[in-house]
């Protein structure tokens, strides 16, 4: 990443001192200007917001929300901020289930965080039975707030540590999950400063625990699954552990070309074959 010279900061700050605060974190003058425009639009204390941004506090924590599809998701410290990659696959998934014949599926959203994926699916499929699960009390409190904020009802919210809890899993048509997927050794190297400093490590750092948990526990209780991934090796890990005779497994890339999702469905299910046709490319 190119260094931003003090001269550049001085130049931008001469137009507006607040832009000088935003430039180091936004990297380009154009992005800084756009962000200042958003901050002004939200009507928050502009000075305070820019000062926080200068210390790399994520914009979503400063302004308190992040758009997600047609929803506005509230964001607070200790809970992961929804990413556009997640928004992309979740919107596509919701549209696919909307046009399918299964109008009232049972959906389980693991590691729900803000509840963004669960809420988006519930909004798209009003008759679906959606359960959102997270182990963090902060997340659980925020999901409840978000339900209220977006005027969505009838989503079951459970606080449960799915890796350690041995209560029986819930039978579902679809299990979705955006688990922590950054390996411990890659955390310092690959993660940007703002994320490292302000977003919860609990929601970021894990190796393959959740993919193991998927194969060992949730596969027996569901007809299909969609898990976000950070690296293609995680998709291959899932594909290798799954019985090739009963499951079809695929990988979906995001519009940045990165492998972003591993998904699977029962091979003998005609409806699901049609539903996931073209969602990604099958590897098994």
């Amino acid at each position: 990443m190119p260094r931003i010279s003090p001269a550049m900061i001085r130049k931008v700050a001469s137009y507006d001192p607040l832009l000088g605060l935003l430039l180091p974190v936004c990297r380009t003058a154009e992005a800084a200007r756009q962000e200042l425009h958003w901050i002004r639009n939200e009507g928050a204390s502009v000075q305070r917001a820019c000062a926080l941004r200068a210390r790399s506090v994520p914009l979503q924590y400063v302004l308190g929300s992040q758009p997600f599809g047609e929803l506005e998701i509230l964001c607070k410290r200790n809970v992961l901020i929804p990413r556009w990659e997640t928004e992309e696959w979740a919107s596509e998934l919701a549209a696919r289930w909307q046009t399918s014949r299964v109008t009232a599926p049972t959906v389980v959203d693991l590691c729900t965080g803000t509840g963004c994926v669960a809420l988006l699916l519930k909004r798209a499929l009003p008759r679906a039975q959606v359960t959102a699960i997270d182990c963090s009390p902060f997340a659980i409190a925020l999901v409840t707030k978000n339900l209220h904020h977006n005027d969505i009802r009838d989503v079951t919210v459970l606080q449960r540590d799915i890796l350690r809890d041995d209560r029986p899993a819930i039978a579902a048509d679809l299990v979705v999950c955006n688990p922590p997927y950054i390996p411990r050794d890659a955390f310092v190297r690959d993660v940007t400063t703002s994320v490292k400093m302000y977003e919860p490590r609990l929601a970021l750092v894990a190796d393959k625990e959740f993919y193991t948990n998927l194969c060992d526990v949730w596969l027996r209780h569901t007809r299909s699954f969609v898990y976000e991934i950070g690296d293609i090796s995680q998709a291959h890990f899932v594909a290798d552990r799954i019985s090739a005779t009963t499951w079809s497994v695929g990988i979906r890339r995001d519009s940045n070309g990165k492998p972003r999702v591993v998904y699977g469905f029962k091979t003998d299910d005609v409806q699901l074959n049609k539903l996931y046709d073209g969602f990604g490319y099958l590897v098994r």
Partner: peptide, 19 residues
């Protein structure tokens, strides 16, 4: 339909506001 593409790993590694 094109959206902003960033270099790097994306996903949970970064938090962009490009829309």
């Amino acid at each position: 339909i094109d959206v902003m593409r960033a270099s790097g790993k994306g996903g949970q590694h970064v938090n962009t506001t490009d829309s």
